[in-house]
C-alpha cells in the first residue's frame, strides 16, 4: 500500500495561562463576592473608578483609597443587540449598556433587562438585579442585569468627566 501524500497538516495553536487580575482588581473582586461594589479614588483629582485597576490614568498615580458605591446608577450609553453571538446564552434582542454607578466617574458594560426595548434611553435610572447569594463568586456576573427604577432620568451632562 502506498502512503498517501499529504500537502498540508493542521497545527492547532493554544497556550494556557494562570491569568491574574491585578492586586487592585483582586481587592474589588473579593468585595464583589460579598455583594459590595468597592470603587477606588484618585488622591490627586478625586476621580472615582469602578471597576478599579489600581491607578488613575489621568494622573498616573495609584488609587489606594476605597469607597463602597450603591448598586444604582444611570445609562450612559447603550446598544440593542440583534445578532446572536456563538456561545452566548442570552437570546437577542437584548440591551448592552454602559452603566455609570452613582458616585463613579467611569462606566462599565452590563445588561439591562425587565424593560421594553423601545423605552431604553440615555440617562435612564437603573439598579442591579443580583443573583441568588448562593451563586455569588469573584465576578461581576453576580449581577444578573440592571433594571429601570422608574425614577426621573438624569441629565446626560453629568456623564462629562469632571476636570
Amino acid at each position: 500500500m502506498t502512503e498517501e501524500k499529504k500537502d498540508f497538516f493542521v497545527s492547532n495553536i493554544s497556550l494556557s495561562y494562570q491569568y491574574t487580575a491585578g492586586n487592585a482588581t483582586t481587592r474589588f473582586l473579593n468585595k464583589v463576592a460579598e455583594g459590595k461594589l468597592v470603587a477606588q479614588k484618585c488622591p490627586k483629582c478625586s476621580a472615582v473608578y469602578v471597576p478599579p485597576r489600581g491607578s488613575c490614568p489621568r494622573c498616573g498615580v495609584a488609587t489606594e483609597e476605597e469607597l463602597e458605591l450603591p448598586d444604582t446608577g444611570a445609562v450612559e450609553s447603550f446598544t440593542i443587540v440583534h445578532i446572536p453571538i456563538p456561545g452566548n446564552p442570552i437570546v437577542p434582542p437584548y440591551v448592552s449598556a454602559m452603566i455609570r454607578l452613582d458616585g463613579a466617574d467611569i462606566s462599565f458594560l452590563h445588561l439591562i433587562q425587565e424593560i421594553d426595548l423601545a423605552d431604553i434611553r440615555i440617562g435612564m435610572r437603573v439598579q442591579a438585579v443580583w443573583k441568588d447569594r448562593s451563586e455569588w463568586g469573584t465576578t461581576l456576573e453576580n449581577i444578573k442585569w440592571f433594571k429601570p427604577t422608574g425614577e426621573a432620568d438624569v441629565d446626560p451632562s453629568v456623564f462629562k468627566f469632571k476636570e
Binding site: T20, A21, G22, N23, A24, T25, T26, R53, G54, S55
Partner: peptide
C-alpha cells in the same frame, strides 16, 4: 509577581 498586573 503573583496578582500584580502590568500597571502595578
Amino acid at each position: 509577581a503573583k496578582a500584580a498586573n502590568e500597571v502595578e
